[in-house]
Nucleic acid binder design. Structure first.
Lengths: 228, 228
DNA sequence: GCAAAAGTGTTGGAGATACACCCATGA
DNA sequence: TCATGGGTGTATCTCCAACACTTTTGC
């Protein structure tokens, strides 16, 4: 029995596979998710959806997510991680579509890039004020948020949401926004510095009528470490 | 533009989707994984593989995993959780096959059931002495093991590997096997009892020439809780 | 000089770790 | 009576939480 025969006899079914990406960013108003019209160019009554698309014939799943994201939002080279695979047989009305969900984190510069050239088809929404979403995309966002929240506690994932140089207050804000709670400044600083994963650049940022803040740099940009 | 047109134009590609399951059990010799010949009935030179099969046309992914497991090993009603989706385009030699990997945990009774009626096609292997596996299945097992190890620390997942009634020493053995380290008996007991998730049945098990051990019961059988 | 955010140390409590001996049983 | 695993308590340490005032700047 060769492999092809085996496939024929036990796997007559073919399905569509897509990737959908929950893109998180930090804005003035808190945690945001990037949404697009589905389908694009369908006008104002088309539902909002996650960026996403079908997986090509010889495309790695991760590449598909990256590629889709670049195509639909113009953004590449961000932190991207597989989230979960959703496969309810009735989740798509027209055909069987299984979706491999990812989530992405981008620094404020990227968030602003998208804001800077707004289109009617792609925009940021505050995560707690999103419109109704296409299919089960709200569920996917919710899962992504939970994962992000969990990872914050035992990894250095937060730095993916910050620019290369940042102040400790900015970092604390990221934690407070995602964890949804106020943190003590002194304890936070002690904890972060004890991780030994950031270093003082020696530079300062002047920013309003108050004392300038020290600028720090994450020691291993682009990499996420797991603690303990 | 209706949904079908949209599918046609942006998603001409169909792929095979399978589920593969890493079944863990505790044996005399430590952590074990259930393997089967691939394909079944192909004889002694067929490679060993994870239980798994193609997803049916209207089958939920989770159901597909459950169903496959029941069919290939005769075991149902075990703890099952999605692990990760593997989609390298060249992972299968004959066609594009994306696999949604799951892991399952079963109590010793189930482990013994399978041992009791051995077949040449399905058997347990100690996780550190597995043969070469089909395709990327070794990678899937490795990921499952890491996930299991991680979850042990922040959830009550260990109880899925034990019978309804168990001794504290048995529980400790599960932790030691998975964490790969010796634990202090007194500290372990204090920690577990502090979780307040097991109760003393009052009964004891006589078992060899030593003092009998108290039997405990997990308070929420089948359910996994997350700590903290 | 005042408003606004940056920066800084100490104390107390909870939970984890280290550690050694007696108990109940079967042979 | 001995070998085997079952069962128990205390002292210490580490980590986390609580908490308030001084500094530097722009206006």
């Amino acid at each position: 029995m060769n492999t092809l025969t085996e496939l024929r006899s036990t796997a007559p079914w073919l399905v569509h596979v897509s990737t959908d990406i929950v893109v998180f960013g930090i804005g003035h108003d808190g945690l945001r998710v990037l949404l697009r019209r589905h389908p694009p160019r369908a006008g104002a009554d088309a539902p909002w959806a996650l960026p996403g698309g079908y997986v090509g014939p010889v495309e790695h799943l991760d590449r598909s997510a990256e590629h889709t994201l670049a195509q639909q939002t113009g953004v590449d080279n961000v932190y991207l991680e597989q989230l979960y695979t959703f496969g309810r047989p009735d989740r798509h009305p027209a055909s069987r579509v299984i979706t491999v969900a990812y989530y992405a984190l981008m620094p404020p510069r990227r968030v602003e890039e998208i804001n800077a050239r707004p289109t009617p088809e792609v925009r940021w929404y505050p995560i707690d004020r999103m419109p109704d979403l296409y299919l089960d995309h709200a569920e996917i966002v919710a899962l992504g948020r939970r994962r992000l929240e969990a990872k914050l506690e035992y990894s250095t994932i937060a730095f993916q949401l910050l620019p290369t140089e940042f102040t400790l207050s900015e970092l604390q804000r990221v934690y407070e926004i995602i964890l949804y709670e106020k943190l003590d400044k002194r304890n936070f600083r002690k904890r972060i510095l004890a991780l030994d994963c950031i270093e003082d650049t020696g530079r300062k940022r002047r920013d309003g009528s108050h004392r300038p803040a020290g600028l720090y740099r994450y020691k291993s940009p682009g990499k996420v470490h797991y603690l303990k």
